[in-house]
Amino acid sequence: MQAELHGTHPARVASTPFTESDWERVGGTLRALRELRGYRPEEFANHLGISRSYLVNIEAGRKKLTNVMLARAAETLKVPQIAIMRPTDAPSITATAGGTA
């Protein structure tokens, strides 16, 4: 029971099908969309509710983008969440200044 309370029970450990290179791709996509929309890192981090240094780590693939941050990023950038998370072999979603494809 003690292990379960501290999140070490195998059934409670969060896992992700993403590899390190997947997170690097997601971070690179996020950075590219941020730059396309003209957001400075500090400004965009404020929209996500995180520090600039945390954003830099996400964009470099060193930190993972949480579901909450993903939702905030997609809303701020006016793109569907899948446009940030999609694999590189998925159909391309064109981001325009108006946020429509």
Rank of each mutant, 00 (worst) to 15 (best):
M1T: 13
M1E: 13
M1C: 06
Q2P: 00
Q2L: 14
Q2K: 13
A3W: 12
A3F: 13
E4T: 09
L5G: 15
H6E: 15
G7E: 12
G7R: 14
T8N: 08
H9D: 15
P10H: 11
A11P: 00
V13Y: 09
V13A: 12
S15Y: 02
P17E: 11
F18H: 12
F18A: 11
T19I: 04
T19R: 15
E20I: 15
S21P: 00
D22G: 05
W23K: 07
E24W: 02
E24S: 11
R25M: 10
R25A: 14
V26L: 08
G27P: 03
G27T: 03
G28Y: 08
G28P: 03
G28E: 11
G28Q: 10
G28V: 06
T29I: 11
L30H: 02
L30Y: 02
R31I: 01
A32D: 14
A32K: 12
A32I: 05
L33P: 01
R34K: 10
R34H: 07
E35H: 11
R37N: 09
R37Y: 03
R40K: 15
R40F: 11
P41M: 04
E42D: 15
E42S: 09
E43H: 10
E43C: 05
E43V: 14
A45F: 01
H47E: 12
H47M: 06
H47D: 05
L48W: 00
L48C: 01
L48V: 01
G49N: 11
G49Q: 08
R52F: 00
S53F: 01
S53E: 13
L55M: 09
L55F: 04
L55D: 01
A60S: 15
G61F: 03
G61I: 08
G61P: 03
R62W: 08
K64D: 07
K64V: 10
L65N: 01
L65G: 00
T66A: 09
T66I: 08
T66L: 08
N67V: 12
L70F: 05
L70P: 02
L70W: 07
L70Y: 04
A71N: 07
R72C: 12
A73Q: 02
A74T: 08
A74S: 13
L77H: 03
L77K: 01
K78P: 02
K78A: 14
K78M: 12
V79A: 04
V79G: 02
V79F: 05
V79C: 07
P80W: 05
I82G: 00
A83G: 09
M85E: 03
M85D: 00
M85A: 13
R86N: 14
P87F: 10
P87R: 13
D89I: 10
D89G: 03
A90N: 06
S92E: 15
I93K: 00
T94C: 08
A95P: 13
A95Y: 03
G98D: 15
G98W: 09
G99V: 07
T100E: 14
A101K: 08
